[in-house]
Each structure stands twice: as C-alpha cells, then as structure tokens.
Amino acid sequence: MTTMTLRIGGFSTRLPTRLVLVNAVLVILLVAFAGQSLLAGTYPTSLADLQNALSGRADKITSMILLDHRLPRILTAIGVGLAFGLAGETIQTLLKNPLASPDIIGFSAGAGTGAVLTVVLLGTGTFVFLGAMLGGLTVAALILALSWKRGIAPGQLVLMGIGISLTVSVINDLLMTRFDVTEAAQIAKWLVGSLEARHWQDVSILWLGLACLGPLAFWFQFKLSRLALGDETATVLGVAVDPARMATLLLAIGLVALAVSVAGPLPFVAFVSGPIAHGLTRQPRPTLLCAALVGALVTLLADTASQSLPGGLTLPAGIFTALIGAPVLLWCLIVESRKRRG
C-alpha cells in the first residue's frame, strides 16, 4: 500500500493513497449528484439557467425553483449528512462498538419525545425543531450524567444509553396512541426525518454550526485515533484519556443536535457511514473525512430518491436513508468477510 507524505512548514501528515483516492472519488460523486439533483426534476433546468439565476437574469419561476427551493434543500442534505457521518464515526470509534451510534447516546429518541411533546403541549407544529433539540440534549445529558463515574466509562455509557433510549422510545410510542390518526401521521413524518421545504435560514444555521464543530472534530481525530488503541496505551502515549473522551463525546452530541434539529433523526446515516468508510478505505478507524463524505452522499441520494417516486407519491427522506444505507453496509460486510476468509 503506497502512501503520500505532505509537509508544508509546520504542517505534516501521512496519507495512504487509497484513502486519498476514496475521498476524491466520494467528493466527485457528491458534486455530480448535487448537480444532477439541482438541475433535474419535474421542472428541468440547464446549466445556463443556473448561471442566469445566480446573476439575477433568469425568470422568476426558474430562479425560485433553483435558488429558493432546490439549492437550500441540497445544501441541507449535504450538511446534515456530513454532521451525522462525523458524529457516527466519532462515537463508534470512541466506544469501540459497531452497534454504537448517536441513537445510543439517546439523542434520536430524546429528540422524538421533545418533538411529540411540543405538539401535545403547544398544539402546533411550529416549534417542533426547538422541542427536538431540547429533548435530545436533555436525554443525552441524562445519560452522560448517569454513566459518569470518575470519568466516562464507555461500557457503562453504552448500556445506559441503550436502556434509556429504549424507555424513551416506548414513551414516544405511547404518546403516539394519544393523538387522532391524522396528527399521528404528521408526527410520524417528523419522527422519520425529512428534508422537505428547507429554507436558507436552515442552511445558514446548519453550515454555521458545521463551520464551528467540523474543524474541532478533525482536531480531535488525533486524540481519538490514540483512544482507539485502548485507555492504557493512550495514557502511555500522553493523551489525557478522560478529558479527550468527554470532549469528543460532547462534540459528537453537538453535531447530532445540529443535524437532528434541522432534518429530524434521519435513521441510519450516522450508524452506517463509519462502517462503509472503513470498508472502502481499509484504514484503521477513525477515518472522519471519509465517513462524513459517505454520510453526505447517502443523505443526498436519499433525498433525491424521496422526490423521484412514481405516481406523484412523496415519502420523507428518512425512509430512504435506511433503504440506501442498509444494502451498502451489507455489501461491505460480505466483501470484508470474503477477504478475511479467502
């Protein structure tokens, strides 16, 4: 396996060629699909239309569809995918368990309860996102506090998280039986996660958050990859284990909070990005950038698929994240086990 070495002034890094290639291909795919998703659709447009729209020379409808409808939606999809991918890879590496994902720190279930309760208490769906954010953060904080014992113990955190998430999701199920069926359908749509009707406001919140948290995540990748060697080895290598673990966890929670509050839970993106990235790059985890790109690609594809159903049917993107992610994960599993046994 060949590698590339990069040294510029005080900056130096070593990159396996395969990792660079995989990431490059993912970026190209992402741009291609984003472009396709921007221009194609029930109202087809051309590259020239886009140029005109950007410079303000296009007609009103074209400009509205491209700039106010499709572009924010695509940018939201990519941003949410990046955030989920980063968070998923971080948490799975940190807890050393492929079953761990942000669902495990209770965020998705908590966000669900928050959302449903907002609708119950306020009688309107306007503040669903706020409720989701609050619910998610509350449950995540509860799990962190309960599993705290002179530091974060990963095993305890995972068990605690699964337990509390299960309880909270049963509360969600119970609440669902309290509505009439029409309201229940509305809430269900949100619980699945959707990217419909996103505005520039959502885009700016999301990308502003990403601009703050993303670089921090990559900064902590250095410590995270040492934590993957085990607590003892990490300590020997001079990494303060407890603070590093706490910081990366909080970072992951922040990323998930950001993504969930903009798009709903979008099941499976965070869970699947890391294993797919690992399967593609064949690098020891964490491979944050690759996982983030995979997350973005899965979300974008899911959103495109959710809009191109036959017969004018629309389903939320959250349905398709799992429909796309699961087969890819299974394919990775099969390839990996062939390699290992062959």
Binding site: T5, R7, G10, S12, R14, F222, S225, L237, G238
Partner: peptide, 18 residues
C-alpha cells in the same frame, strides 16, 4: 508511528524526525 504521539500535534503528524 503512534509512539510519536507525545512529540506531535494534530497539525504536525508526520515530520521528518518522526
């Protein structure tokens, strides 16, 4: 190369000395 950790930083992960 993980052994080099205490001498590295997130920006400087593969110096000539490393």
């Amino acid at each position: 190369k993980q052994g080099r950790t205490p001498h590295q930083s997130p920006l400087n992960q593969w110096s000539l000395a490393d």
